[in-house]
């Protein structure tokens, strides 16, 4: 962040309480957040806003997270945006589907906040190291 333009992160999550927590956590780290509460809204926001990173829940109204991720990764204009999938479901199975769909990371929702933040930092700044 180093005083430069803050990175913008899109959160796609239908659970209002979890959305709020994630937003507060990210903003406390100096990120700017964009919020979407269902799948289609989320996908449109990715296309329009071109955020620096997307965090998406899996079970969502109108379009599930796996599909959003696949559509992002198939689209030449936005496929470079890292996608983190968040799930509270049967973790092994979702992790596998997420991997096949091209997600950059898969995290269980009950994992420690620090871990999530570390993954975000890694994904946001991996290009600069390379």
């Amino acid at each position: 962040m180093n005083g430069s333009i803050p990175k913008r992160i899109l959160i796609i999550e239908d659970n209002e309480a979890f959305l709020k927590i994630l937003k507060m956590r990210l903003e406390s780290r100096g990120y700017e957040t964009i919020l979407a509460r269902d799948g289609l809204e989320g996908l449109n926001a990715v296309r329009k806003e071109k955020p620096d990173l997307v965090i998406s829940d899996i079970m969502l109204p109108t379009m599930d997270g796996h599909k959003i991720c696949r559509l992002i990764k198939l689209d030449r204009n936005i496929r470079h945006i890292p996608v983190i999938m968040l799930s509270s479901r049967d973790l092994d199975k979702d992790a596998e589907i997420a991997k096949k769909g091209g997600a950059d990371a898969f995290i269980g929702k009950t994992i420690r906040a620090e871990v999530i933040m570390d993954v975000i930092t890694k994904l946001l700044y991996k290009d600069q190291r390379a």
Binding site: A17, F18, S88, R89, K109
Partner: peptide, 8 residues
């Protein structure tokens, strides 16, 4: 898990 995630 969902409510646990929110509490946590």
């Amino acid at each position: 898990r969902t409510p646990i995630a929110v509490m946590k």
